[in-house]
Simulated scan of single mutants.
Amino acid sequence: MKALPVDALPVAIIETLRAVLGEGNAALHEPCFQGNEQRYVQDCIASTFVSSVGAYVGRFEQALAEVTGARRAVAVVNGTAALQVALQLAGVEAKDEVIIPALTFVATANAVHYLGAIPHFADSEDQTLGLDPAALRDWLSTIAERSGAGAGRRNRHTGRRLRALVPMHCFGHPCDLDALLAIAQDYQLALVEDAAESLGSRYHGRHTGTFGLLGTLSFNGNKTITTGGGGAILTADMHLADHAKHLTTTAKRPHRWESMHDEIGYNYRMPNLNAALGCAQLEQLPNFLASKRRLAARYRDAFANAGLDQARLMQEPPGCESNYWLQTLILDERVADQRDAILTATNDAGLMTRPAWTLLHQLPPYRDCPRAPLPVAESLARRIINLPSSAGLA
């Protein structure tokens, strides 16, 4: 591979990564299929029930509920669909505002937009990379006003109802849920967790995605477990779970032969074929999580031995257990201008790294959305580098 001229910091980071990963290429995050995947998928094919009907969907939903501690889990086609339906079930309507972090994947905002609602961006905190409760409370104290008895709060600048709050557990690290739940209660906001990245993560012993009215998961190919494409809605409310199941199966009323649909629903049910893959993946989740924690420890030791004071590795917040979905290096602000040089050098060396997502308020579709001051999110976006994180690397 052609060597490129690089300065000292990119070289030192490559050497440190090599100390953990050895020689050769390393993907950012790739799935690991070492269990019953082929057997379950072949069984699904043999049954001929590969689409929206079949035993593996219910089996996968039950296993998810057991793993997360949720009372119910409803499997759907992807995490974005899960969040869209969860927000609808939480009462989000067209022209409502939904508070979400600016530092998140675009799907969080898209799910809001699909309902005709408006994303309202809030800042993140340095310790968790999730929504900053203190900054959010300060912001709401200036822009939220009562809109009438029992009607919640509205944005005094836009006149729109503030309807929901969506914490996203960034790279698998739990947010400060206690403080965010208190804000949701004080401002009459429905709290819906975007736990797309945090399967296996726990906040004070309790699984993420189970604190709000509803929570959502993703099983895309780059997640801790995968169903190829897929997601799930978690809730303790049996009525909401039943409604979620109904909405995501085209709102079709059960009948032996009639096709009667009693409301506008979605064709969002997870296919049985994907659920079969998910059942096998869930069986291996404890091993995946242990491997990712070992990888995090090896990175931590390697960077400590390297003596690099210009960067730090993201660690799980106090009182939390993170799944370390994506291992995250955070550059010091004084070397933030070297981020792209590090990304270029590492990727040229066959070590796949990437920056954080483009902040949502900087994307063309969302530039005019309401937002709080975002100094921390904007700083983090300049400094985050995700490192190779596959469970197989450990």
Rank of each mutant, 00 (worst) to 15 (best):
M238W: 08
R256V: 14
Y203I: 04
L313Y: 10
I233P: 04
D262C: 07
A195F: 03
A232S: 10
R206V: 08
L277Y: 06
H207T: 05
L247N: 06
N220A: 14
L234W: 02
M314P: 02
L240C: 07
A275F: 01
E283N: 10
T224A: 11
F288L: 13
N287D: 13
Y266S: 09
A275Y: 05
R206W: 05
F303E: 00
Q284G: 00
F219T: 04
H204M: 12
F219Y: 13
A179G: 02
F219L: 09
L213V: 08
Y268N: 11
N274R: 13
T208D: 06
Q188K: 12
T227W: 06
A297R: 15
A304W: 01
L313H: 10
A302S: 12
D194Y: 04
T216A: 08
H255W: 08
G307Y: 01
S218H: 04
D186Q: 11
F211T: 03
H255T: 10
G212R: 05
A251C: 11
E258M: 13
G200D: 00
Q315V: 06
A195S: 13
F211Q: 10
L189F: 02
N267G: 14
D194W: 05
H255Y: 09
F288W: 11
K292N: 03
H204R: 15
D186E: 12
P254D: 08
L308Y: 03
W257F: 14
E283A: 13
K223L: 12
L217E: 00
H239G: 13
A280S: 05
G265A: 09
K245L: 14
H261M: 10
L295A: 09
M270V: 04
G212H: 04
G221H: 11
K245I: 03
T248A: 07
N274M: 09
M238E: 15
M270T: 04
F219W: 09
A290N: 09
K252V: 07
N220D: 15
A280K: 05
R293D: 08
S259D: 15
N272S: 10
A275D: 06
L247T: 01
Y266I: 04
A290W: 04
M314D: 00
N267S: 14
A232L: 06
Y203L: 01
I233N: 02
K252N: 10
H239I: 11
L181I: 01
Y268S: 07
K245N: 14
D178S: 11
G212A: 05
A290D: 07
A251S: 15
N272Q: 07
